[in-house]
Protein backbone atom coordinates (compact mmCIF):
# COMPACT_ATOMS: atom_id res chain seq x y z
CA UNK A 1 0.00 0.00 0.00
CA UNK A 2 2.73 2.37 0.98
CA UNK A 3 4.57 1.60 -2.23
CA UNK A 4 1.44 2.35 -4.23
CA UNK A 5 0.89 5.62 -2.44
CA UNK A 6 4.48 6.51 -3.00
CA UNK A 7 4.17 5.80 -6.67
CA UNK A 8 1.02 7.87 -6.92
CA UNK A 9 2.77 10.70 -5.12
CA UNK A 10 5.74 10.50 -7.45
CA UNK A 11 3.42 10.72 -10.45
CA UNK A 12 1.63 13.70 -8.94
CA UNK A 13 4.92 15.41 -8.21
CA UNK A 14 6.00 14.78 -11.78
CA UNK A 15 2.80 16.34 -13.07
CA UNK A 16 3.33 19.27 -10.75
CA UNK A 17 6.56 20.08 -12.56
CA UNK A 18 4.46 20.71 -15.70
CA UNK A 19 6.38 17.94 -17.44
CA UNK A 20 4.47 15.51 -19.58
CA UNK A 21 3.54 12.31 -17.86
CA UNK A 22 5.23 9.25 -19.28
CA UNK A 23 2.91 6.31 -18.72
CA UNK A 24 4.90 3.81 -16.71
CA UNK A 25 2.84 0.61 -17.04
CA UNK A 26 4.94 -2.49 -17.53
CA UNK A 27 5.44 -3.27 -21.22
CA UNK A 28 8.52 -5.46 -20.86
CA UNK A 29 6.66 -8.51 -22.18
CA UNK A 30 5.05 -6.69 -25.10
CA UNK A 31 5.96 -7.12 -28.75
CA UNK A 32 5.64 -4.30 -31.27
CA UNK A 33 6.01 -4.80 -35.04
CA UNK A 34 6.60 -2.28 -37.80
CA UNK A 35 4.71 -2.89 -41.04
CA UNK A 36 6.30 -0.94 -43.87
CA UNK A 37 5.20 -0.97 -47.48
CA UNK A 38 8.22 0.38 -49.34
CA UNK A 39 11.96 0.74 -48.75
CA UNK A 40 13.15 2.04 -52.10
CA UNK A 41 14.22 5.60 -51.25
CA UNK A 42 16.52 7.38 -48.83
CA UNK A 43 13.69 8.56 -46.59
CA UNK A 44 12.38 5.04 -46.03
CA UNK A 45 15.90 3.71 -45.50
CA UNK A 46 16.52 6.34 -42.81
CA UNK A 47 13.11 5.60 -41.36
CA UNK A 48 13.91 1.89 -41.00
CA UNK A 49 17.27 2.74 -39.46
CA UNK A 50 15.63 5.09 -36.95
CA UNK A 51 13.18 2.36 -35.98
CA UNK A 52 16.00 -0.12 -35.62
CA UNK A 53 17.95 2.24 -33.32
CA UNK A 54 15.05 2.94 -30.99
CA UNK A 55 13.80 -0.65 -31.05
CA UNK A 56 17.15 -2.19 -30.18
CA UNK A 57 17.73 0.29 -27.36
CA UNK A 58 14.22 -0.30 -25.97
CA UNK A 59 14.68 -4.07 -26.12
CA UNK A 60 18.05 -3.81 -24.38
CA UNK A 61 16.57 -1.58 -21.68
CA UNK A 62 13.78 -4.11 -21.15
CA UNK A 63 11.04 -1.69 -22.16
CA UNK A 64 9.64 -4.11 -24.75
CA UNK A 65 10.36 -7.76 -25.52
CA UNK A 66 10.76 -7.45 -29.26
CA UNK A 67 10.24 -4.85 -32.02
CA UNK A 68 11.15 -6.18 -35.48
CA UNK A 69 10.37 -4.38 -38.74
CA UNK A 70 8.85 -5.93 -41.85
CA UNK A 71 8.84 -4.46 -45.34
CA UNK A 72 6.77 -5.78 -48.23
CA UNK A 73 8.65 -6.57 -51.42
CA UNK A 74 6.22 -4.73 -53.65
CA UNK A 75 4.48 -1.48 -52.78
CA UNK A 76 0.99 -2.98 -52.87
CA UNK A 77 -1.88 -2.69 -50.42
CA UNK A 78 -3.02 -6.29 -50.84
CA UNK A 79 0.44 -7.54 -49.97
CA UNK A 80 0.63 -5.30 -46.90
CA UNK A 81 -2.81 -6.50 -45.81
CA UNK A 82 -1.51 -10.08 -45.91
CA UNK A 83 1.58 -9.00 -44.00
CA UNK A 84 -0.52 -7.42 -41.22
CA UNK A 85 -2.73 -10.51 -41.02
CA UNK A 86 0.42 -12.57 -40.50
CA UNK A 87 1.44 -10.20 -37.70
CA UNK A 88 -1.92 -10.72 -35.99
CA UNK A 89 -1.33 -14.47 -36.23
CA UNK A 90 2.13 -14.07 -34.75
CA UNK A 91 0.52 -12.45 -31.74
CA UNK A 92 2.08 -9.00 -31.74
CA UNK A 93 0.60 -6.66 -29.13
CA UNK A 94 0.95 -3.57 -31.28
CA UNK A 95 1.52 -2.93 -34.97
CA UNK A 96 2.98 0.34 -36.21
CA UNK A 97 2.03 0.90 -39.86
CA UNK A 98 3.36 3.03 -42.69
CA UNK A 99 0.51 2.20 -45.01
CA UNK A 100 0.47 1.73 -48.79
CA UNK A 101 -3.06 3.10 -48.92
CA UNK A 102 -5.08 5.16 -46.43
CA UNK A 103 -8.17 3.05 -47.06
CA UNK A 104 -7.38 -0.28 -48.70
CA UNK A 105 -5.99 -1.74 -45.46
CA UNK A 106 -9.04 -0.82 -43.38
CA UNK A 107 -10.57 -4.30 -43.43
CA UNK A 108 -7.36 -5.83 -42.13
CA UNK A 109 -6.77 -3.06 -39.57
CA UNK A 110 -10.26 -3.68 -38.21
CA UNK A 111 -9.43 -7.36 -37.84
CA UNK A 112 -6.30 -6.44 -35.91
CA UNK A 113 -8.26 -4.16 -33.58
CA UNK A 114 -10.88 -6.88 -33.07
CA UNK A 115 -8.08 -9.26 -32.12
CA UNK A 116 -6.98 -6.76 -29.44
CA UNK A 117 -3.94 -5.44 -31.28
CA UNK A 118 -3.02 -1.76 -30.94
CA UNK A 119 -2.54 -0.24 -34.41
CA UNK A 120 -0.64 3.03 -34.81
CA UNK A 121 -0.23 4.50 -38.31
CA UNK A 122 2.20 7.22 -39.31
CA UNK A 123 3.44 8.86 -42.53
CA UNK A 124 1.09 6.78 -44.69
CA UNK A 125 -1.85 6.79 -42.29
CA UNK A 126 -5.03 4.69 -42.33
CA UNK A 127 -8.58 5.98 -41.97
CA UNK A 128 -10.02 3.05 -39.98
CA UNK A 129 -11.34 4.73 -36.78
CA UNK A 130 -10.03 2.04 -34.41
CA UNK A 131 -6.40 2.85 -35.33
CA UNK A 132 -4.26 5.71 -34.04
CA UNK A 133 -2.89 8.19 -36.56
CA UNK A 134 0.26 10.26 -36.30
CA UNK A 135 -0.83 12.86 -38.79
CA UNK A 136 1.70 14.84 -40.73
CA UNK A 137 0.44 18.13 -42.02
CA UNK A 138 1.38 17.52 -45.66
CA UNK A 139 -0.96 20.22 -46.97
CA UNK A 140 0.68 22.65 -44.56
CA UNK A 141 4.05 21.53 -45.92
CA UNK A 142 2.95 22.56 -49.42
CA UNK A 143 1.46 25.82 -48.26
CA UNK A 144 4.54 26.74 -46.20
CA UNK A 145 6.61 26.65 -49.38
CA UNK A 146 4.47 29.27 -51.10
CA UNK A 147 4.31 31.30 -47.88
CA UNK A 148 8.10 31.40 -47.88
CA UNK A 149 8.20 32.31 -51.58
CA UNK A 150 5.74 35.16 -50.97
CA UNK A 151 8.26 36.60 -48.51
CA UNK A 152 11.15 36.22 -50.93
CA UNK A 153 9.32 37.27 -54.10
CA UNK A 154 6.82 39.96 -53.06
CA UNK A 155 5.67 40.48 -56.66
CA UNK A 156 4.97 36.81 -57.17
CA UNK A 157 6.33 34.76 -60.03
CA UNK A 158 6.06 31.71 -62.23
CA UNK A 159 6.41 28.38 -60.43
CA UNK A 160 7.39 24.93 -61.56
CA UNK A 161 5.77 22.28 -59.41
CA UNK A 162 7.46 18.92 -58.97
CA UNK A 163 5.01 16.36 -57.68
CA UNK A 164 5.56 12.94 -56.16
CA UNK A 165 4.26 9.51 -57.06
CA UNK A 166 0.90 9.76 -58.88
CA UNK A 167 -2.05 8.23 -57.06
CA UNK A 168 -0.43 8.32 -53.62
CA UNK A 169 -2.31 10.36 -51.03
CA UNK A 170 0.81 12.21 -49.81
CA UNK A 171 1.38 13.63 -53.29
CA UNK A 172 -2.24 14.75 -53.45
CA UNK A 173 -2.05 16.46 -50.04
CA UNK A 174 1.15 18.41 -50.69
CA UNK A 175 -0.19 19.44 -54.08
CA UNK A 176 -3.41 20.70 -52.51
CA UNK A 177 -1.40 22.76 -50.04
CA UNK A 178 0.66 24.29 -52.83
CA UNK A 179 -2.47 25.17 -54.82
CA UNK A 180 -3.96 26.75 -51.71
CA UNK A 181 -0.79 28.79 -51.18
CA UNK A 182 -0.82 29.95 -54.80
CA UNK A 183 -4.43 31.07 -54.43
CA UNK A 184 -3.65 32.87 -51.18
CA UNK A 185 -0.69 34.89 -52.44
CA UNK A 186 -1.28 37.15 -55.38
CA UNK A 187 0.99 37.06 -58.41
CA UNK A 188 1.96 33.40 -58.22
CA UNK A 189 1.15 31.02 -61.01
CA UNK A 190 2.06 27.36 -61.62
CA UNK A 191 3.59 27.45 -65.10
CA UNK A 192 4.27 23.74 -65.32
CA UNK A 193 4.13 20.55 -63.34
CA UNK A 194 5.89 17.18 -63.55
CA UNK A 195 5.89 14.00 -61.49
CA UNK A 196 9.37 13.51 -60.01
CA UNK A 197 8.43 10.42 -57.97
CA UNK A 198 10.49 11.79 -55.04
CA UNK A 199 13.57 10.59 -56.89
CA UNK A 200 16.36 12.93 -58.08
CA UNK A 201 17.04 11.12 -61.35
CA UNK A 202 13.36 10.98 -62.29
CA UNK A 203 12.88 14.63 -61.36
CA UNK A 204 15.90 15.63 -63.43
CA UNK A 205 14.68 13.72 -66.49
CA UNK A 206 11.12 15.02 -66.23
CA UNK A 207 12.15 18.63 -65.63
CA UNK A 208 14.66 18.49 -68.48
CA UNK A 209 11.89 17.26 -70.76
CA UNK A 210 9.49 20.02 -69.81
CA UNK A 211 11.93 22.95 -69.57
CA UNK A 212 12.06 23.85 -73.29
CA UNK A 213 8.32 24.53 -73.24
CA UNK A 214 8.42 26.77 -70.16
CA UNK A 215 8.84 30.54 -69.76
CA UNK A 216 11.38 31.90 -67.24
CA UNK A 217 10.78 30.08 -63.98
CA UNK A 218 11.20 32.08 -60.75
CA UNK A 219 10.87 29.29 -58.25
CA UNK A 220 10.44 25.53 -57.98
CA UNK A 221 8.14 24.02 -55.39
CA UNK A 222 8.92 20.42 -54.53
CA UNK A 223 7.98 17.45 -52.38
CA UNK A 224 11.46 16.35 -51.28
CA UNK A 225 13.95 14.11 -53.04
CA UNK A 226 13.55 16.10 -56.23
CA UNK A 227 15.21 19.51 -55.68
CA UNK A 228 18.73 18.44 -56.58
CA UNK A 229 17.56 16.75 -59.78
CA UNK A 230 15.66 19.90 -60.72
CA UNK A 231 18.77 22.03 -60.14
CA UNK A 232 20.80 19.71 -62.39
CA UNK A 233 18.18 19.97 -65.14
CA UNK A 234 18.19 23.79 -64.97
CA UNK A 235 21.98 23.85 -65.04
CA UNK A 236 22.21 21.46 -67.99
CA UNK A 237 19.70 23.54 -69.96
CA UNK A 238 21.73 26.69 -69.30
CA UNK A 239 18.73 28.42 -67.70
CA UNK A 240 18.86 30.93 -64.83
CA UNK A 241 18.83 29.06 -61.54
CA UNK A 242 15.42 29.61 -59.89
CA UNK A 243 14.74 29.54 -56.18
CA UNK A 244 14.35 25.82 -55.50
CA UNK A 245 12.75 24.68 -52.27
CA UNK A 246 14.65 21.68 -50.96
CA UNK A 247 13.49 18.58 -49.13
CA UNK A 248 16.22 17.82 -46.55
CA UNK A 249 18.04 15.20 -48.67
CA UNK A 250 21.80 15.18 -48.21
CA UNK A 251 22.55 15.90 -51.89
CA UNK A 252 20.09 18.79 -51.82
CA UNK A 253 21.59 20.37 -48.72
CA UNK A 254 25.14 19.87 -50.03
CA UNK A 255 24.20 21.57 -53.32
CA UNK A 256 22.53 24.43 -51.42
CA UNK A 257 25.62 24.88 -49.23
CA UNK A 258 27.93 24.96 -52.26
CA UNK A 259 25.72 27.53 -53.99
CA UNK A 260 25.51 29.60 -50.80
CA UNK A 261 29.29 29.68 -50.42
CA UNK A 262 29.71 30.54 -54.09
CA UNK A 263 27.02 33.15 -54.75
CA UNK A 264 24.94 33.58 -51.59
CA UNK A 265 22.06 31.40 -52.84
CA UNK A 266 19.15 31.48 -50.40
CA UNK A 267 16.30 29.02 -50.00
CA UNK A 268 14.67 26.82 -47.40
CA UNK A 269 14.25 23.12 -46.99
CA UNK A 270 11.59 21.07 -45.28
CA UNK A 271 10.51 17.49 -44.90
CA UNK A 272 9.35 15.00 -42.35
CA UNK A 273 12.10 13.54 -40.19
CA UNK A 274 12.29 9.79 -40.89
CA UNK A 275 12.42 9.31 -37.13
CA UNK A 276 8.62 9.63 -37.33
CA UNK A 277 8.87 5.84 -36.95
CA UNK A 278 10.23 6.44 -33.44
CA UNK A 279 7.17 8.50 -32.58
CA UNK A 280 5.10 5.57 -33.84
CA UNK A 281 7.05 3.19 -31.64
CA UNK A 282 6.77 5.30 -28.49
CA UNK A 283 3.11 6.05 -29.09
CA UNK A 284 2.38 2.32 -29.34
CA UNK A 285 4.47 1.71 -26.22
CA UNK A 286 2.64 4.45 -24.29
CA UNK A 287 -0.76 3.04 -25.30
CA UNK A 288 0.34 -0.43 -24.15
CA UNK A 289 1.60 1.15 -20.92
CA UNK A 290 -1.91 2.38 -20.24
CA UNK A 291 -1.71 5.99 -21.37
CA UNK A 292 -4.93 7.53 -22.64
CA UNK A 293 -3.92 8.69 -26.10
CA UNK A 294 -6.16 10.61 -28.52
CA UNK A 295 -6.66 8.86 -31.87
CA UNK A 296 -5.26 11.71 -33.97
CA UNK A 297 -1.78 12.93 -33.10
CA UNK A 298 0.36 15.51 -34.86
CA UNK A 299 3.94 15.53 -36.06
CA UNK A 300 5.72 18.78 -36.92
CA UNK A 301 7.74 19.13 -40.12
CA UNK A 302 11.49 19.60 -39.88
CA UNK A 303 12.33 22.96 -41.44
CA UNK A 304 15.93 23.86 -42.32
CA UNK A 305 16.46 27.60 -42.62
CA UNK A 306 19.39 29.42 -44.16
CA UNK A 307 20.87 30.29 -40.75
CA UNK A 308 20.96 26.70 -39.44
CA UNK A 309 22.05 25.03 -42.64
CA UNK A 310 25.44 23.91 -41.34
CA UNK A 311 24.00 22.59 -38.12
CA UNK A 312 21.45 20.39 -39.93
CA UNK A 313 23.94 19.20 -42.55
CA UNK A 314 25.85 17.68 -39.66
CA UNK A 315 22.68 15.75 -38.81
CA UNK A 316 22.13 14.49 -42.33
CA UNK A 317 23.80 11.19 -43.16
CA UNK A 318 25.47 10.87 -46.56
CA UNK A 319 22.81 9.73 -49.00
CA UNK A 320 20.13 10.14 -46.34
CA UNK A 321 17.60 12.64 -45.03
CA UNK A 322 17.99 15.18 -42.24
CA UNK A 323 16.94 13.35 -39.15
CA UNK A 324 16.18 13.93 -35.53
CA UNK A 325 15.69 11.65 -32.56
CA UNK A 326 12.28 11.48 -30.94
CA UNK A 327 12.38 10.17 -27.40
CA UNK A 328 9.76 8.66 -25.15
CA UNK A 329 9.57 11.99 -23.26
CA UNK A 330 9.11 13.99 -26.47
CA UNK A 331 6.32 11.67 -27.58
CA UNK A 332 4.60 11.95 -24.20
CA UNK A 333 4.87 15.74 -24.42
CA UNK A 334 3.37 15.69 -27.90
CA UNK A 335 0.50 13.44 -26.77
CA UNK A 336 -0.08 15.79 -23.84
CA UNK A 337 -0.08 18.85 -26.11
CA UNK A 338 -2.60 17.29 -28.51
CA UNK A 339 -4.80 16.22 -25.59
CA UNK A 340 -4.87 19.76 -24.22
CA UNK A 341 -5.20 21.44 -27.60
CA UNK A 342 -1.80 23.11 -27.31
CA UNK A 343 0.73 23.46 -30.17
CA UNK A 344 2.92 20.37 -30.46
CA UNK A 345 6.56 20.69 -29.38
CA UNK A 346 9.11 21.43 -32.13
CA UNK A 347 11.26 18.69 -33.62
CA UNK A 348 14.11 18.14 -31.16
CA UNK A 349 17.38 19.41 -32.60
CA UNK A 350 19.61 17.47 -30.23
Amino acid sequence: MRVLLGAAFAVLAGAGLARAEVASGDTSGKRIALSNNFAGNSWRQSMLKSWEETASKAVKAGIVAEAPSFTTAENQATEQAAQIQNMILEGFDAIVVDAASPTALNGTIKEACDAGVVVVSFDGIVTEPCAWRIVIDFAGMGEAQVDYLAKRLPDGGKLLEIRGLAGVSVDDEIHKGIVEGVEKHEGFEIAGSVHGDWTQTVAQREVAGLLPTLPKIDAVVTQGGDGYGAAQAFKAAGRDMPLIIMGNRSDELAWWKAQRDQNGYETMSLSIAPAAAQVGFWTAQQILAGSDVPKDLLLPTLVVEQADLDKWIARTPEGGVTNATYTQEWTAEMIDAVKNGKPVPATPSE
Partner: peptide
Protein backbone atom coordinates in the same frame (compact mmCIF):
# COMPACT_ATOMS: atom_id res chain seq x y z
CA UNK B 1 -14.59 -9.94 -53.06
CA UNK B 2 -11.42 -7.85 -52.81
CA UNK B 3 -13.49 -4.72 -52.15
CA UNK B 4 -15.52 -6.66 -49.59
CA UNK B 5 -12.36 -7.63 -47.73
CA UNK B 6 -10.56 -4.30 -47.84
CA UNK B 7 -13.76 -2.24 -47.22
CA UNK B 8 -12.46 0.42 -49.61
CA UNK B 9 -10.26 0.59 -52.67
CA UNK B 10 -7.72 2.47 -54.72
CA UNK B 11 -6.77 2.32 -58.37
CA UNK B 12 -3.57 0.37 -57.62
CA UNK B 13 -5.16 -2.16 -55.31
CA UNK B 14 -4.84 -5.31 -57.43
CA UNK B 15 -2.06 -4.59 -59.92
CA UNK B 16 -0.01 -7.53 -58.70
CA UNK B 17 -2.84 -9.94 -59.46
Amino acid sequence: TLAGLSTSADANIALRY
